[in-house]
């Protein structure tokens, strides 16, 4: 049983973001991390491996050269090897192009489970898993709170508006996880050392049998405007008041806005 975890490098939530002149995120200027939800996907894969349900955990990332850092960090958490798709023609890739490229790479890697996070911190579309499933012609098990593998079947537990469902599909599948699967582990010093010796292979578009034309110059969408959020009135502060006085001030504030 082989799992490929798709890992995206994203700007850290605390990092200052900048846009380039052509309205793309300037990734070089931002501090980068593994997309936090992808750490949960890694954790789920490694737990299945520790439980003996999976032999091999492989990582796949599409991104600029610097995204190799995210793959090294993933390898430090565990797993066997990593693949990076990087190509100048993929700069500014949207979710459709990303899905197209990941689907082609997954075609080469042929895992039993292609495992992803439920969304990426920067795009937040949650579109890549479903699109990869559609392009590859595979079942999708999305928003998993837990992934279970038995024989030739994958099952997930998915939380619903009123409890949870269990979904099932025959392998191979595409699956995505939420942050309910369990807290991601930290890489140990030993893990970090070991990661340096693990294989990290780089592919370009041609290695996947794709051309820039196949991915429509990396995008079907474009950003036409970037601006800061609307500035709101400054925060009003209520401090150093007794509870009754503070409550009365809040009630006044609510009444002034016709909320009570």
């Amino acid at each position: 049983m082989k799992i490929v975890v798709c890992v995206k490098q994203v700007p850290a939530t605390t990092a200052e973001k900048r846009y380039t002149a052509d309205l793309r995120l300037d990734r070089a200027a931002s501090e980068s991390v593994i997309n936090p939800l992808d750490e949960y996907a890694i954790e789920q894969a490694l737990r299945l491996q520790e439980a003996g349900a999976v032999e091999t955990v492989v990582y796949l990332s599409m991104g600029p050269e610097s995204a190799a850092e995210a793959l090294r960090r993933a390898l430090a958490m565990g797993g066997e090897e990593a693949y990076q798709v990087t190509d100048d023609a993929l700069a500014g890739a949207d979710q459709w192009a990303t899905a197209r490229v990941l689907a082609a790479a997954l075609g080469k890697l042929a895992p039993d489970v292609a495992l992803m996070g439920m969304s990426s911190d920067d795009a937040r579309g949650s579109l890549v898993p479903g699109a990869v499933a559609a392009i590859r012609g595979l079942p999708l098990l999305s928003y998993a709170a837990e992934l279970m593998l038995t024989g030739s079947t994958a099952r997930i537990r998915r939380l619903t508006a009123s409890g949870f469902d269990v979904l099932e599909a025959p392998l191979p599948v595409v699956a995505s996880v939420t942050d309910q699967v369990g807290e991601p582990r930290y890489a140990s010093l030993k893990g970090i050392m070991a990661a340096r010796r693990k294989s990290l292979e780089t592919w370009n578009l041609a290695d996947l049998g794709l051309s820039a034309h196949d991915v429509h110059g990396a995008a079907l969408t474009r950003v036409v405007e970037v601006r800061p959020p609307e500035t709101k009135a400054p925060t009003e502060r209520v401090e150093n008041l007794g509870p009754a006085e503070a409550a009365s001030r809040i009630a006044d504030w609510l009444a002034a806005r016709k909320l009570i």
Binding site: W96, R124, L220
Partner: peptide
């Protein structure tokens, strides 16, 4: 929503459509 996103994502993949959001 989870359902809406999954269906939209599959449609994007099947027909090669542009997608924006959320």
């Amino acid at each position: 929503t989870p359902n809406g996103r999954d269906l939209a994502a599959a449609l994007m993949g099947l027909l090669g459509l542009p997608a924006l959001g959320p």
